[in-house]
């Protein structure tokens, strides 16, 4: 089933060795991304979604972090075994990443054109002139008005949405086959968020690339993803085609997330939000069995002693819950 994948992650474990103990930020994540599809990774802070993404590009700060188990293969190559030099070639060319806060990812002392062009020249032997022209082309592609003028501007002269467009232009300059977008719209206003998502989806179609979209916002997932992985406490707790996930969520955590969203349709006082009780889990004090059990309204005795496996409940719909 996963042979046609562009990216396959198998049993990934990324741990952080801190003063207080070993934080198992990602603990056995398996996922695959097929060419051209959008895989959504959804979960709350500390669920391991960003660490998973950083692990794929081997960008985990070491120390304190370290990939201690699993395999990551991209296009038939084992990324975890590649020498540093090789993985650097892959970053930004075949796999690109964009982040939540575009301002911190851009260098304030260079113009955006210089930064886009430098990214190109870093990977390809092209003349300064050509890289510059391609930078302008890149900005045009992300629908920045008047790119010839904008390339000469500095990041602080651009609005947040514009900066995120520049980041996307940089990420796409070399035609990656996989784009990892980590909360790309979270820092943006809702009207700008809609613009950026629309742009991303358009470019994905145009460039035939796969997108791994990381977000905490189920709404963003619903609008963009083909398949979804729900993460909790460093694990995948549910995996499904987007429609199945929203129509028929199997894991109580997914159900809880969906129910805790305020809905526009409901009138005031009509529906009390169904909150998930308890706190976002502390990765240092996880229970032995199901990690969600302490917050789960449906938990039964068997949830506590052993952790359930991720099982395929229906074709293509997986859940890590004994009740599913």
């Amino acid at each position: 089933m996963r042979n046609d994948s562009l990216l396959t992650v198998e049993g990934l474990q990324t741990h952080f060795f801190t003063e207080e103990g070993v934080v198992r930020a990602v603990d056995g994540v398996t996922l695959s991304v097929r060419p051209g599809e959008t895989l959504g990774l959804v979960g709350e802070s500390g669920c391991g979604k960003t660490v998973t993404a950083l692990s794929i590009l081997r960008l985990i700060p070491d120390p304190p972090g370290r990939i201690v188990g699993g395999t990551i293969s991209f296009d038939g190559r084992d990324l975890l075994r590649l020498p540093e030099e090789e993985i650097r070639k892959i970053r930004g060319s075949s796999i690109s990443m964009i982040f939540q806060e575009p301002m911190t990812s851009l260098n304030p002392v260079f113009t955006v054109g210089e930064q886009v062009a430098e990214g190109i020249r870093h990977h390809q032997k092209v003349s300064r002139r050509e890289a510059w022209d391609r930078a302008i082309e890149g900005l045009r592609r992300v629908k920045i008005a008047d790119p010839v003028r904008r390339v000469r501007e500095y990041p602080h002269q651009l609005s947040g949405g514009m900066r995120q467009r520049v980041m996307i232009a940089m990420a796409l300059a070399l035609g990656p086959r996989l784009l990892i977008a980590d909360e790309p719209t979270t820092a943006l206003d809702v009207t700008i968020q809609a613009q950026i998502l629309e742009l991303l989806l358009g470019l994905q179609e145009e460039m035939k690339m796969a997108v791994m979209l990381i977000t905490h916002d189920l709404g963003v997932i619903a609008e963009t993803a083909d398949r979804v992985l729900v993460m909790y406490a460093g694990r995948v707790v549910e995996e499904a085609v987007v429609k199945d996930l929203f129509d028929n969520p199997l894991h109580p955590y997914t159900q809880g997330l969906l129910e805790s969203l305020p809905r526009l349709e409901a009138g005031k006082g009509g529906r009390r939000l169904t909150a998930i009780p308890g706190l976002v889990p502390n990765l240092l004090e996880l229970p032995v069995g199901c990690k969600f059990a302490p917050r789960c309204s449906k938990a039964v005795g068997e949830c506590w002693p052993t952790e359930p496996e991720l099982r395929e409940i229906r074709p293509g719909h997986w859940a890590r819950c004994i009740l599913a």
């Binding site: 514009m162 009207t191 809609a194 189920l218 996930l245």
Partner: peptide, 25 residues
């Protein structure tokens, strides 16, 4: 209207045409 339409609904079915605003605030 634009704010309303920009809100991603927690529902993957295709909705009516979205009203995406031009430009930045």
């Amino acid at each position: 209207q634009a704010l309303m339409s920009a809100i991603p609904a927690a529902d993957p079915r295709p909705k009516g045409r979205r009203m995406v605003l031009e430009g930045d605030p």
